[in-house]
Design a protein around this nucleic acid. Structure first.
Lengths: 349, 349
DNA sequence: CCTCGCCTTTGGAACGATCCAAATGTACCC
DNA sequence: GGGTACATTTGGATCGTTCCAAAGGCGAGG
């Protein structure tokens, strides 16, 4: 009654074919649910599949069909909750669609980024979602991924963007509008001396957010002092370290629009060290709405970017592109939403 | 000079062979750096590889060699910073070793877990790192992954663990010792009425932490009231909702060992709502040392579990097993470290 | 000149699936 | 009985790589 499954080796379609006396082609048809096969035969084959514990070898199928069932997801900082949520969103949609996520995290290093992209390319992903490391170069990325695999650029622009990379899709946050909303909110609260704190020259999102801040200040006819624009690495530690720079100029600001939540939380600590109470002596806003923002002391006014939704959106965008490469490249700007909390108090004096 | 690369199709080893008049076998040898090939030939082939922009097709190679170059990473909650850090650690090591990470996140659903495992298995990973969803069943997981692919169980035990699953490796945190350390610390601070707050019956880590708490209380000769043991879903929201249960019994506790940081932060909010100041009216400890723990108000005493290191460790363990499946299965217990911060104050009255 | 060994290269059969054109069966009608 | 239409099944080539046994070239030694 039927031979036993092979030992120490994976069960293949040939084993099944041999096990129930049909050809490999027929088993293949059954596997793909073809209406061509007789239901009696189908039942026999399906029984045998169960009996031997067959698992489909998608790599072999993909080889023959010249298709791929994976999408590469390359992130500059997986450990950042923003990207973790994003990744969860991506994986959710890809999983539902039968794709598998090839993960690569670059730790914000451009060399590692190129290495990771090169390694992932060897697995022939159908598409790539890339949140580039700071300082990534378009030419090098193009050289690493080629022009046959669709790529979706998320969250950041890359430098040296040339005509040859214009076929990449893009998904960005509405950084400029977000920072403008935050700045306008502080202005409405009565602030006149507002700083822009944190972030890096190199990053396109920082430039965009700063532009939004400048836009709002200009629109309100408020001056910007040079000492109010402070750069730092966008993490808590460096934000603490640079916080005194805010007060080195002629006039001290009464509020700050921060590059992101991490920076804002760092600035809060720095303010404490100066004896200032954030949320009553000094107002500030963040960007991202990370989990901590709602529970910090005081809770942080910030811009919600719903990273999980962005992840889902990114997955859908790349899947559309994979299914039909013909339409012209698309740039998508995702909206952000201002969440007012206690940190953006009116001016103290 | 030489023919042009193919258009709209990937460059294959045959294209290279044709392009410089050698056999496919020779090109293959060059690709793998074999010492057999003449250095003159090698140079010619390498030039052609560059010229045509060849990318290695690892799937085809793996098919022929009956090997695999991927490891599946299946997590119950990627969005949780703990697992995000863990994933970053895993990917770091795997990337260095030439493996690629197949990501799957299950959102704490056992059905999705089985679906994800099934889908990943079709890509033939060399091994699997699994942090199971709550309520996962060993039998079902075994049925999904088979017994040929090594599996490393991380962080949680699975239910219905049977003899047939005893060949899985395991990597757990020292939950019991951690909770014991936290409890002992509160006892040293002078607390006598200490609660264990949050977590789920179903979860093995919760049982272990609770056991550590009970152990410390018993060792100190302190009684435990039934109302001091409160269950809730381990997130902030549910922790807020259940916080009044702590005070429904005959005697109110003065301190609580919380299942994890998220729960502790939720309890802080709940205490505020009752008019109690955490860190002066009531002491509490967390578990995990998530980023927020250091910046909450008050900063949270907790147990550092260094998830990124655990990720690296998990990757190394599964790689060892992949390289040599013969040694007996191993259970590894990773140490945790108590971080004392302001939340674990002495009793107020 | 033949043989031997050494270095290098090679054709063709795998790997596990899919595709395609062709074969088989079987029922029906003229 | 022969021809047609339809439903079902099948062998063999193929995807891009690796493996293997064997072949080719060449210089040295007999």
């Amino acid at each position: 009654m039927g031979n036993t499954p092979p030992v120490g080796r994976k069960v293949t379609l040939s084993d099944i074919a041999a096990g129930c006396d049909v050809s490999r082609a027929t088993v293949s048809l059954v596997l793909r649910g073809s209406p061509l096969v007789n239901k009696h035969t189908r039942a026999r084959v399906e029984e045998e599949l169960r009996r031997q514990g067959y698992v489909y070898n998608r790599a072999a199928a993909n080889l023959r069909r010249r298709t791929s069932s994976s999408i590469a997801l390359v992130l500059n900082d997986l450990a950042n909750p923003f990207f973790a949520e994003f990744a969860a969103g991506v994986d959710e949609i890809l999983g539902d669609t039968g794709f598998v996520t090839l993960l690569g995290s670059t730790g914000e290093s451009t060399e590692r980024e190129l290495a990771v992209l090169g390694s992932l390319m060897e697995h022939g992903p159908a598409g790539i979602i890339l949140s580039p490391a700071e300082g990534s170069d378009a030419q090098q990325i193009l050289a690493a991924v080629g022009s046959l695999t669709p790529l979706l650029l998320f969250n950041r622009e890359v430098s040296g963007d040339v005509a040859s990379c214009d076929h990449w899709d893009r998904l960005f946050l509405d950084n400029q509008r977000g920072a403008r909303l935050a700045t306008e909110h502080l202005i409405e609260q009565g602030h006149k001396r507002i700083a822009f704190y944190g972030g890096h020259l190199g990053s396109s999102s920082c430039r965009q957010r700063r532009a939004g801040y400048v836009e709002a200040m200009k629109a309100a006819g408020l001056p910007i002092e040079q000492s109010w624009i402070v750069e730092c690495i966008p993490n808590r530690l460096d934000a603490v370290a640079h916080s005194e720079q805010l007060f080195n100029g002629k006039t001290a600001p009464t509020a700050a629009v921060c590059y992101n939540d991490a920076v804002a939380l760092g600035l809060m600590l720095g303010l404490h060290q100066r004896g200032l109470q954030p949320g009553s002596d000094f107002a500030l806003t963040g960007f991202d709405d990370i989990a901590e923002a709602a529970v910090s002391a005081p809770p942080l006014t910030t811009l919600a970017v719903t990273p999980r939704d962005r992840g889902r959106q990114a997955a859908e965008l790349i899947l559309q592109r994979v299914r039909d490469p013909s339409p012209p490249p698309r740039q998508t700007i995702a909206p952000v939403q201002l969440l007012v909390r206690a940190s953006s108090c009116p001016p103290h004096d």
